[in-house]
């Protein structure tokens, strides 16, 4: 037991170190420690499940160890910048004021084609339009356009947006009534039933999707019924 505990700790820190050395581009959207925990836990859980000759505790101890270490790291990371930068790395600036930071690109082992590809995915086709491009600690690229390249906003145009809906709440999803959401938007079952009757529907089960915005606007999509054998819509 003590061996698997020590081995788990060693492997955990080894994989964290490897991923940190490999760089952010390997990570996707998870933080390094989260990724390591996900990989290891799924594998650790699988081994005692498949091999009945291995006691369950040999899988449970490493998983509990990883879980606790991950909790400790995230708690300490929230308290200390140093610990956070050790485990999660730092944000890198790849483009500043339209100028590509070649040194940082080389350090992160990202070639310019990949950078341009990432920019295109964000609808930016000219790096000179970029005020700042950050490579985040989870491996994603955040782009801030130059002030002159940003789309004009309603507030800049002094357009009154007070009548525009902003907050959308789902009330029914695939026939299931979300009572908490109904209550949180200040409506009750009577109001809901009235809405359903207005649309010739009997109960929430007849609704595929019902959404309400903060101005009271309702989007209601009725449930479509299919013949299970033929897949043809009924009615």
């Amino acid at each position: 037991m003590v061996t698997s505990f020590a081995r788990t700790l060693i492997l955990y820190f080894l994989i964290i170190f490897s991923l940190r050395v490999m760089g952010k581009r390997q990570l996707g959207e998870l933080q390094p420690s989260e990724l390591v925990t996900s990989i290891l836990i799924s594998d650790l859980a699988a081994v005692p499940m498949q091999d009945l000759g291995i006691p369950l505790i040999q899988g449970v101890v490493p998983i509990l160890t990883l879980f606790s270490v991950e909790l400790l790291i995230s708690a300490f990371s929230a308290r200390s910048v140093r610990i956070r930068s050790f485990f999660c790395g730092r944000t890198s600036v790849l483009i500043k004021n339209g100028v590509i930071n070649q040194r940082e690109l080389k350090k992160q082992r990202i070639n310019v084609t990949e950078l341009l590809e990432e920019l295109r995915l964000k609808d930016v086709f000219d790096p000179r339009q970029v005020g700042c491009a950050y490579l985040e600690t989870n491996g994603t690229l955040s782009v801030q356009l130059m002030a002159g390249e940003r789309p004009v906003t309603a507030s800049q145009m002094q357009v009154d947006t007070s009548t525009e809906p902003e907050l959308y709440t789902t009330l029914i999803a695939q026939g299931r009534l979300l009572s908490v959401n109904l209550k949180s938007c200040g409506r009750d079952r009577h109001w809901l039933d009235a809405q359903l009757r207005k649309n010739n529907l009997q109960s929430p089960k007849d609704v595929y999707l019902m959404v309400i915005d903060n101005r009271g606007g309702v989007l209601l999509v009725p449930q479509e019924h299919f013949d299970k054998r033929s897949g043809v819509k009924e009615g």
């Binding site: 037991m1 160890t65 606790s68 909790l71 400790l72 708690a75």
Partner: peptide, 14 residues
């Protein structure tokens, strides 16, 4: 609370 919980689990394992 998280730190205490995690440390407790580790101590129990050790």
């Amino acid at each position: 609370r998280y730190i205490t919980g995690a440390l407790s689990v580790l101590l129990v394992i050790i």
